[in-house]
């Protein structure tokens, strides 16, 4: 602690973050160089941040313009007269709040599904031994390689026979079978966790499932955070699946709702951008709060081998 204190404001004063201490003590001593180094980091970060912010700023500017001003030349960054009413109009035109609520329901169920299925499956692949494991693993990976559109018609046929069209089931059920992307990610992650931990627990009398849920899972916090963030993002943006399976206008998610701003012949770009901007805010807010959990795991435990 004392060490981080004298390093000033640059270092997060996280107790027990031994890795931080390792890095900081490496640059300890040469104060001027340290400040210079961190200054450079900020310059680089800010420069990249500006590049990455441009689209958001541009969308924001477009959302406040009148239809003809968007295409005026020379193009302007700041609208002559910001039309805040575009936002009101976008919400008036279609029930965007309702659409976002629907998406939220889908997101929650998808996250629950992934959280239940993925750790279990990944643990099996990473830690347990059984015949045909490698073949099954390759098979699972290969389902990611098939172009999704090819499965559209047969899959629709199945759900239709089961009478599940115009319900959220086809949009939620797959999560409970585990997404191969997350399974693969978690397998890789579990494989980097030292086996000594399992062995120690087993000697203490813990069974397979206890080891998974008591030992492994708590160490997988960053990867679970990734799962939540990505599931949120993917479900939020998924257009094709809800389009194919839903009939009821008021059950549409926001991805489908946004598409209504694009007409058959033209697009009201200002309203479209306003609606898009509003719709991505929840994703960014979630990410802002979730990301602190991306930082953690073994590194912060200061685990000694």
């Amino acid at each position: 602690m004392s060490q981080s204190k004298d390093l000033g404001p640059l270092i997060a004063a996280e107790a027990g973050d031994s890795r931080n201490r390792a890095i900081t003590s490496a640059i300890n001593g040469v104060t001027a160089r340290r400040w210079l180094g961190y200054g450079a980091v900020y310059v680089v970060l800010t420069a990249i941040a500006i590049v990455f912010m441009i689209p958001l700023l541009w969308m924001f500017a477009t959302s406040l313009k009148s239809r003809s001003e968007i295409f005026a030349w020379p193009p302007s960054w700041i609208p002559e007269q910001p039309l805040w009413s575009n936002y009101a109009m976008a919400f008036e035109k279609y029930p965007l709040a309702r659409f976002m609520m629907n998406t939220s329901v889908l997101v929650i169920f998808n996250i629950i599904g992934e959280l239940l299925a993925v750790p279990l499956i990944a643990y099996g692949f990473a830690r347990l031994n059984f015949p045909f494991k490698r073949v099954l693993f390759i098979l699972m990976l290969s389902t990611m390689m098939i172009p999704g559109q090819i499965k559209l018609i047969p899959l629709y046929s199945i759900y239709s026979r089961l009478g599940l069209v115009n319900t959220y089931v086809p949009l939620v059920l797959p999560a409970f079978f585990g997404n191969p992307f997350f399974i693969f990610l978690m397998v890789q992650y579990i494989r980097t966790i030292p086996r000594d931990l399992d062995e120690a627990a087993r000697i203490d009398g813990a069974g397979t499932w206890t080891i998974l849920y008591r030992i492994i899972l708590p160490l997988c916090k960053p990867v679970l955070a990734v799962m939540i963030v990505f599931t949120f993002l993917w479900v939020w943006n998924d257009f094709l699946q809800p389009l194919i399976y839903l009939n009821d206008f008021y059950s549409y998610p926001i991805s489908v709702g946004l598409a209504f701003f694009r007409g058959r012949y033209s697009v009201e770009w200002n309203l479209f951008m306003a609606a898009t901007l509003v719709s991505i805010l929840p994703v960014l807010v979630l990410y802002f709060f979730a990301q602190r959990h991306l930082i953690g795991g073994i590194a912060s435990l200061g685990l000694k081998g």
């Binding site: 239940l116 299925a117 279990l120 499956i121 643990y123 099996g124 692949f125 347990l128 031994n129 059984f130 015949p131 494991k133 099954l136 098979l139 699972m140 389902t143 899959l155 199945i158 059920l173 797959p174 409970f176 079978f177 585990g178 191969p180 399974i183 397979t208 499932w209």
Partner: peptide, 18 residues
């Protein structure tokens, strides 16, 4: 091995069914 297959069960159901 049995535990392994149990752990894979959700994925296998999804794979076979869908």
């Amino acid at each position: 091995a049995i535990e392994g297959y149990i752990s894979l069960l959700p994925w296998m159901i999804g794979f076979v069914g869908f």
